[in-house]
Design a protein around this nucleic acid. Structure first.
Length: 233
DNA sequence: GCCCAGGAGCCCG
DNA sequence: CGGGCTCATGGG
């Protein structure tokens, strides 16, 4: 068994299934239950859109801050491409204030809303993974990680999401990859081409990064302690 | 007060 | 192609 697969097994055994991406439950419409929750479910169109918007909002931002914005967007009926397009910049920016970068992100949300109006979510889903990826990357505000998060978590495409945590953790573990594409290839070459597997693995990486492999690592109790050469007091 | 968080665009050599 | 800068709130 290769090392990438082995690390997955260790993390899954330690933390269990994470149930990403968190989404607002169906039928919640009045103040309660508006908070995105973890759990396995098939997403409807609105939830897929919520995931796409969340993927933009969480750029370099903690999920807790994004959660508040998603609650606001739900309350104001903005999980809707038409409403986002019609909304004024100020209204939209105000609704997502807690996510930070609200001026930039308000524009990005409008860009992705425009994109969905011309290619529907359904139409995007039917395309080949790489073709859909290419189209997403043409949207201003959608980079590699955001595109791949949308493909994997909203559209259920088998593609591995690389983030700052992935680079940090596997860098400390001794892997020599540097760029986004190099890391993505590492995982694609080492694992079965399975969306469910990629889904859980990325979520487990985030969990490990939050619990142990922080900027200032807490190596005590780390589930990868036995195989990690990185030492920090 | 400082540092960091589930990045991306832009500019510059 | 790589590096530095900007964007901004909220929690530790």
């Amino acid at each position: 068994m290769n090392k990438i697969q082995k690390i997955y097994d260790i993390l899954l055994n330690k933390y269990g299934y994470q149930g990403w991406w968190p989404v607002t439950p169906l039928g919640s419409c009045r103040g309660d239950s508006l908070v995105p929750i973890y759990g396995i479910s098939k997403h409807n169109e609105k939830q897929k859109l919520e995931i796409m918007l969340g993927a933009i909002l969480t750029q370099n931002t903690s999920w807790k801050n994004v959660e508040k914005s998603i609650v606001e967007l739900n309350k104001k009926g903005f999980i809707d491409a038409d409403k986002i397009i019609k909304a004024s910049h100020e209204t939209l920016a105000n609704a997502i204030k807690s996510s930070g970068y609200f001026n930039q992100k308000a524009k990005k949300l409008k860009n992705i809303a425009d994109f969905i109006k011309s290619n529907s979510i359904n139409g995007l889903e039917k395309k080949e993974t790489n073709e859909a990826r290419k189209l997403l990357l043409e949207v201003n505000g959608v980079g590699p990680e955001t595109a791949d998060s949308i493909l994997l978590y909203a559209l259920d495409k088998p593609i591995f999401v690389v983030d700052a945590y992935t680079k940090r953790i596997f860098g400390r573990l001794g892997f020599k990859e540097q760029t986004y594409e190099e890391f993505q290839q590492l995982f694609h070459n080492s694992l079965e081409n399975d969306a469910k597997l990629f889904n859980e693995y990325h979520a487990l990486i985030v969990e490990l990064a939050k619990k142990h492999c922080k900027t200032k690592p807490i190596c005590n109790g780390c589930p990868l302690g036995n195989i990690c050469p990185y030492k920090k007091i």
